[in-house]
Amino acid sequence: MATTNRAPKLKLSNVSKEFTAPGTGQRTVAVADVSLEIQSGEFICVVGPSGCGKSTVLNMVAGLAEPSSGTIEKDGVPITGPGADRGVMFQDYALFPWLNVRDNIGFGLRHGTPGKELSRSTREERVGHYIELVGLAGSENKYPHQLSGGMRQRVALARLLANGPDILLLDEPLGALDAQTRLILQVELLRIWGETAPAEQRKTAIFITHDIEETVFLADRVVVMSTHPGRVKAVLPVDLPRPREETIRAEPRFGHLAEEIWGLIRDEAYRAIA
C-alpha cells in the first residue's frame, strides 16, 4: 500500500541501553539516545568500531534485549519481545548442530507457528525452494559440522528467509568468511534480498559490519556509530545505482563514500588500538 511507504517500517526513538555489572552494580551505557527511522524495503548498514553498541541495537530490534529508555516501534506498534516477523542471522550462524541442513532451514516453519502449522508438504516445498535459492541442493542431509563456513552461512540465510520475516537483522553475517567468499556472498545477498525486484517488494534489512567497503556495496543508507557511549554519529545515503555489480567497486563515487565513512571512524579506530 502507498501509505506504508510514508510511515517508517521501523522507528527508534531516543533508545538507550545500560548494562549493570553483576556484583559490583556498576553501570555502563552501551547505547545512548539513538533515533532512527527506517523505511520499508531499505537496506541499512550499521558500521562502527567494536564496542559501539551496534549489536546491542540489533538485539533490541530483535526483541532479545529491552531498551533502558526510549521506544522501538515496528509499523507503529512497540516491540515487546522476539518474534518471527524479525528474523536474525547471527554472526556464528547459530545453526542447530543436531539438525541437518533441511531441518535447520525448516525449524521455524515447524516449531515457530503455533496454532497455524503449515502442512508437511507446504513446509517441504518452502524449504526446498530456499535450498535452491541459496545453492545448497545436494547437501540437504548434511549436518552443520560437515559444511564449510560459506555453506553454513548459506544455511543460516536460507533459514532466515524461510521463516518469511519482513525485517532481516544481520549481525556480521559475513564476518567469519575468507575474503573471496565474502565478496561472492555480498553479491548473492543482494540478489536474494531482492535487488532486482521493485523497491516495494524488498524486505527491510539491517546489516551490521565493521567492513566499510561492505557497507558501501550493500547499503541504501549507512549508519555510522561511535563508541563510549554508542551513538549515531552520521547517516549517509549511498547514491549508487542498483543492481550493483562487482565493477562498482572501481568507480570513483564508491571510493569517495568509503573514504568519507573511514574519515568518520578513523580517530576512534586508532584510539581503540593505541
Binding site: L64, P82, G87, A94, W98, F107, G112, R159
Partner: peptide, 29 residues
C-alpha cells in the same frame, strides 16, 4: 547450552515451552 541457539529459536517465534524440547533437550543430549 549455547545461548545463541535459544535466541535463534526465540527470533523464529518458537514459544517458550517448546524451546525446552526443541533446543535445550537436544543440545544437552
Amino acid at each position: 547450552v549455547d545461548r545463541k541457539l535459544v535466541q535463534a529459536a526465540m527470533t523464529m517465534g518458537v514459544p517458550r515451552p517448546r524451546i525446552l524440547a526443541t533446543v535445550i533437550l537436544p543440545a544437552a543430549l
